[in-house]
């Protein structure tokens, strides 16, 4: 009989162990959106910079324009045949499916906002979630007398040579710039792993 008592303990432990795993499985909810691209691949894509499309190439029938501005801005004026999905709404409702459908039809979704930078948020989030057929339209939008004006936009254009400007201004006044005091560069101490005391086993 003593043997049987021991068995009870064993079976209780075993049942509990299985129960915990089953409960875990039952309550497990697969997250709705999963990344399929990791950060390194995303960075590679960013550097490759092949995800831009110029304004004069949007007449192609294989593209779908998506306006990521707010519905309010969209109402004020938008490009022809554009669909409005504002950035905060990207992952809500049927919107992800829409992108899937665009992919299934072998079309390319072109995102645009009032600047390419605005579209970039949506682009990067979507790309990391595995929607690869998306591009950013190089456009900047402006209004003139309530009419939408589209301009070609060049990203990250270096407009002026700031050094030259400063030198120019100094030449005008004919002063010799004082040698600038260099503030020593900040050095961020590398975080050392805290050395933990080695604990003994039993």
């Amino acid at each position: 009989m003593k043997e049987l008592e021991k068995t009870k303990r064993i079976s209780i432990a075993a049942v509990l162990f299985i129960l915990i795993i089953i409960i875990g499985l039952l309550f497990y909810e697969r997250p709705k959106h999963l990344y399929t691209v990791n950060s390194n691949d995303m960075l590679e894509k960013v550097i490759k910079a092949d995800y831009f499309i110029a304004l004069d190439k949007i007449d192609d029938p294989s593209i779908v324009l998506i306006d990521i501005r707010s519905p309010f801005e969209f109402e004020k004026g938008h490009l022809n045949e554009a669909i409005n999905i504002s950035t905060p709404e990207l992952l809500k409702g049927d919107n992800p499916e829409l992108f899937n459908k665009i992919a299934a039809n072998k079309k390319v979704a072109i995102l645009y906002g009032s600047t390419p930078t605005e579209a970039n948020n949506a682009f990067m989030v979507l790309y990391q979630l595995g929607f690869e057929n998306i591009k950013i339209l190089l456009v900047s939008l402006a209004y003139e007398q309530n009419k939408l004006i589209t301009n070609n936009s060049i990203i990250e254009k270096n407009v002026t040579d700031i050094n030259a400007f400063i030198a120019e201004s100094q030449k005008k006044v004919k002063i010799v710039p004082k040698p600038k005091k260099r503030i020593p560069k900040k050095v961020v101490p590398k975080k050392k792993k805290k050395k933990m005391p080695v604990e003994g086993g039993c």
Binding site: H33, L34, Y35, T87, P88, L91, A122, V125, Q128, L129
Partner: peptide, 9 residues
């Protein structure tokens, strides 16, 4: 991803 989008906006 949802949090990322929220932060991005």
């Amino acid at each position: 991803p949802e949090a990322l989008l929220k932060n991005a906006v």
